[in-house]
């Protein structure tokens, strides 16, 4: 025998289930009066610096059907590329920008939608710049462990081409699954990021 490392094991994941909205977005699910608003759902404060954008899309299962009961969380840097919250030691992020948002997909159309800002550039661990990106975390009934992926921006061809993460994707045909094309509506850029859990054009998911 040798000495024990005395480490614990991470609690095993279990699916968020069909009623995740009761816990995460109770007001959306009709349980009102418990919390003043659903966490992560408040609109951006006017003071937040940065270009206002819309990020929207649907999540498709392996049959091509949009799923109607998913919950999406996003986490991103501010306009200067600094993370709010904890773990950022390069400087203070925009104090008005939370960096984290959470939305259910629409129960009928399956569409999710975030109004946020375009994030700045964040360095990779070796100091190279990563192209602007938003981290996505998806949970739903039938998903046993939350799925991590990233949205990259369709109007950042040059930065995307130099991005160290995108560069590691061996099957180059899969790179576009992480790149959200841009359109414009109501004077704002709209990035459409459809996520395919399985099947043709399955989105690249990360083990982080």
């Amino acid at each position: 025998m040798v000495q024990s490392l005395r480490r614990l094991k991470e609690s095993p994941s279990q699916t968020a289930g069909p009623y995740v909205h009761i816990g995460a977005t109770p007001n959306f699910s009709g349980i009102e009066g418990v919390y003043p608003h659903d966490l992560g759902s408040l609109p951006l404060a006017p003071e937040v610096e940065g270009e206002r954008i819309v990020v929207t899309g649907r999540i498709f299962d392996g049959s091509g059907t949009p799923i109607k009961d998913a919950l999406v969380e996003i986490w991103q840097a501010d306009a200067q590329g600094l993370y709010p919250g904890q773990g950022e030691r390069r400087g203070a992020a925009d104090p008005h920008f939370p960096g984290w948002f959470r939305q259910p997909v629409d129960g009928t159309s399956g569409v999710y939608r975030f109004e946020t800002i375009k994030p700045g550039i964040v360095p990779y661990f070796d100091g190279r710049p990563m192209a602007p990106h938003i981290t996505f975390w998806i949970v739903a009934r039938g998903i046993n462990i939350g799925l991590h992926t990233r949205l990259y921006f369709g109007d950042e061809d040059k930065a995307n081409a130099a991005d160290p993460i995108l560069g590691r994707i061996e099957h180059r045909l899969r790179v576009p699954t992480l790149i959200a094309p841009r359109s414009d509506a109501d004077g704002k850029p709209v990035y459409t990021f459809d996520i395919r859990l399985q099947g043709e054009n399955e989105t690249v998911f990360f083990d982080i």
Partner: peptide, 8 residues
């Protein structure tokens, strides 16, 4: 989980 599990 059958249709909601990534295959790659």
């Amino acid at each position: 989980s059958v249709l909601r599990s990534p295959k790659y």
